[in-house]
Design a protein around this nucleic acid. Structure first.
Lengths: 328, 328
DNA sequence: CTGAAAGCGCTTACAG
DNA sequence: CTGAAAGCGCTTACAG
């Protein structure tokens, strides 16, 4: 059906090997013949069959990216960063959304494995026990999860969280809530630990709520819980939960800012657009995406070495959702 | 390196053909040998090489999905619907985000073409002249764009828009604005035409602004323009533009609802969470995704027939951003 | 029910 | 610089 290498070779009167070399540009080919080949290929509409190419060369020019939920606005910037970085290195990105189903991660990873030159797995919820299976699918890089023996890009939420708690304490809040993210989430355990430590250091009382799914709806749920606990400030596992909480509070006539301070994590695009705007901890999503691409391609090129762990930092972005603690 | 068919065959003492048949389950194999094969394959950790399989069988068990911008909240629901529908038909979905670069559509489509069993292209911005090239990459289904000679799933915005303009007219608005989407967008030309027709029918004066990119930032820009035109109501090309406009209006002290009515299109998840909540035209994204999967797989199975065009309907969801026209 | 053989479309040492 | 040959790991008629 489609035009093959052999067709072009026949048309030009050379061997398939020569056509292959002329088109891929890997080896020397006589300039005149090369031009004839390129011309003929173009005229005949030849498109190399990538599948066949992969089978022989082992290269796919593809990077697989597995994310938990593309509907969560935290991920698109990462995805875009991965794509643009990959493009600049001659690779195309294949995205798989596992829709927050941890079990699918391994399945999807295995399906992609043979077809790509490397895998990037963001925020895997994979249970610890199964992680080893994923690690086998080299080259693989994890983002937002520390995996023993594997290369990963981590975001260290602790500075940002430290700043957040200091910010609240300086506004006079003495008792704050932390809205936990998913139970299995590595990020959540990091964030929770950081909140605990900061509160302890600053002598702020901490009330933990949740776990909650990283979704706006969960934030709505959380709002009512928070209200019943009589808290004046909360830090949420992520912006979505914070946004949902704010919406529900506003609906109930509670003024976000004056009545209750809310801090999100991720600094997603919506945080500047909500009303009031959401104070949030900036997480360098784009940078982690770019870094992951570099790491995974380096791994693929056999930059053996020991697994690297890259840490990225966070910082607090103060907006309208935090204000002095109300007098009681 | 990895375990191959031949390895398994050798271990069990049968031919590769038999192993292939036993594992793919396409043909009869002696039950006893099948069990030995399955057992050995599992023990050896055999994973079929999908690339090789594709090359011989022609099947990839993959569907390619090309979207303009995954950061736009309109797309994730479509993507998720495509994924779940595809999964139920035994296919995995490969997503490509072309980041609103029309030129990349064809490139990405070509790269994916040989690797997938079918392509779904959402809202292509491809110029009319180049569309023919895309159509060649059969099986292919277009969503949100009518393409001559090709199968597509279209959303008919006209009912929703008719309802929207009626809604505004009944609230006493006599002069409304339409914020155009991207110039090249097929959806925009449909929407604009529908707004024009509805305004004409109802005797409402129409002011057109734009084009604007489907992004929150563009809505911020639009807000100032709208303000200077002294309009009491606007319909935006999509929710993002509407949301950005609302945020900017609020920032400038203009009360959305009482001072200016705003209607978005897409009914994306954020529309219920904004403040005030956004009146929007519901577009059946999930349904269009599912339909597209069915169509593309049917095409692949050689359900020749003439290209089908499926039309889906829209309706207005009234929320807090529309209110009676202010007295002047 | 099973095996041997050909072939999918390319790439890549190996000779020349 | 170029060709012939082998091979990537599977699948699939074709015989038996």
């Amino acid at each position: 059906m489609a035009v093959t290498l052999a067709d072009v070779a026949r048309a030009v009167g050379v061997s398939a090997s020569t056509v292959s070399r002329a088109l891929s540009g890997t080896e020397k080919v006589n300039e005149a013949t090369r031009q004839r080949i390129v011309k003929a290929a173009a005229e005949m509409g030849y498109e190399p069959n990538q599948v066949a190419r992969s089978l022989t060369s082992g290269r796919n020019d593809l990077i697989g990216l597995i994310v938990p939920d593309i509907a969560n606005p935290f991920f698109p910037p990462i995805i875009k960063a991965v794509q643009s970085r990959a493009a600049s290195r001659g690779k195309t990105v294949l995205i798989a959304d596992v829709d927050e189903h941890p079990a699918d991660e391994i399945k999807r990873a295995r399906v992609m494995h043979k077809r790509v030159d490397g895998l990037i797995v963001v925020s895997p919820r994979t249970p610890d026990e199964s992680l080893a299976e994923l690690v086998e699918l080299q080259p693989i890089v994890f983002v937002n999860r520390e995996v023993p023996g594997a290369t990963s890009v981590l975001v260290d939420a602790s500075e940002g969280i430290q700043e957040a708690v200091e910010h609240l304490a300086s506004l006079g809040h003495t008792r704050i809530g932390y809205l936990n993210g998913p139970r299995r989430s590595w990020s959540n355990s990091q964030r929770r630990t950081a909140v605990r430590r900061a509160c302890e250091e600053l002598g702020v009382e901490l009330v933990e709520l949740g776990p909650f799914e990283p979704q706006i709806q969960a934030g709505v749920l959380a709002a009512d819980l928070v209200h019943s606990k009589d808290l004046t400030a909360v830090v949420a596992y992520d912006d979505l939960i914070a946004l949902g909480l704010m919406a529900r509070m506003t609906e109930r006539g509670v003024k976000v800012g004056p009545d209750i301070s809310v801090i999100g994590i991720d600094d997603s695009p919506m945080s500047g657009m909500a009303y009031p705007t959401l104070t949030s901890i900036h997480v360098p999503g784009s940078r982690s995406g770019m870094t992951a691409v570099d790491l995974v391609l380096d791994l693929g090129e056999g930059a053996t070495s020991t697994p690297k762990v890259v840490q990225l930092e966070t910082r607090l972005i103060i907006r309208g959702s935090t204000a002095p603690a109300p007098h009681r």
